[in-house]
Computed example of a mutant assay.
Amino acid sequence: MKLSRYFADHSPAYDAEINDLLSDSEGKNVLEKRLREKRGQIDFLVMMMDDSPEMLAVVFHQGFRFTSPRAMDELAGMEPDRFPSWKKLSAAATLVPWAQTLAERVLQEEGGERFMAIAAVLEYLHSRVDASGAAEAQDDEDEDQRDEDADGEDGDEGDEGESLPRNLEEAGADWLAEQGFERKE
Score class of each variant (00 low, 15 high):
Asp20Lys: 06
Met55Lys: 01
Glu79Pro: 09
Leu75Lys: 08
Asp20Asn: 09
Lys88Ala: 14
Ala8Thr: 13
Lys88His: 13
His10Trp: 15
Gly77Gln: 10
Leu21Ala: 01
Phe64Ala: 06
Ser85Arg: 03
Glu79Cys: 10
Asp9Gln: 12
Trp86Cys: 12
Glu17Arg: 06
Ala91Gly: 06
Met72Thr: 10
Gly27Thr: 07
Gly77Asp: 11
Ser85Lys: 03
Glu79Phe: 11
Leu22Ala: 14
Met55Ile: 02
Glu37Ala: 09
Val30Thr: 14
Gly40Ala: 15
Leu35Phe: 02
Met55Ser: 02
Glu32Ser: 04
Ser25Asp: 15
Pro12Trp: 03
Ser85Gly: 04
Ala13Asp: 13
Met78Arg: 12
Asp15Met: 06
Leu75Trp: 05
Phe66Asp: 06
Gln62Thr: 13
Ser11Arg: 07
Asp73Glu: 14
Met78Phe: 09
Ala91Val: 10
Phe44Leu: 01
Ser23Val: 12
Phe60Val: 05
Asp81Gln: 14
Glu37Gly: 05
Met48Leu: 02
Met78Ala: 06
Pro84Gln: 03
Asn29Thr: 04
Thr67His: 07
Ala16Met: 12
Asn19Ser: 12
Ala57Ser: 09
Asp43Asn: 15
Leu75Arg: 09
Glu17Thr: 04
His61Arg: 11
Leu45Lys: 02
Ala57Glu: 03
Leu31Arg: 02
Pro53Arg: 12
Phe7Ala: 05
Ser52Ile: 00
Val30His: 05
Phe64Ile: 07
Arg65Pro: 00
Ile18Lys: 03
Ala76His: 07
Ser68Arg: 14
Phe60Ala: 09
Phe60His: 09
Lys88Asp: 15
Ala71Glu: 15
Ala8Glu: 15
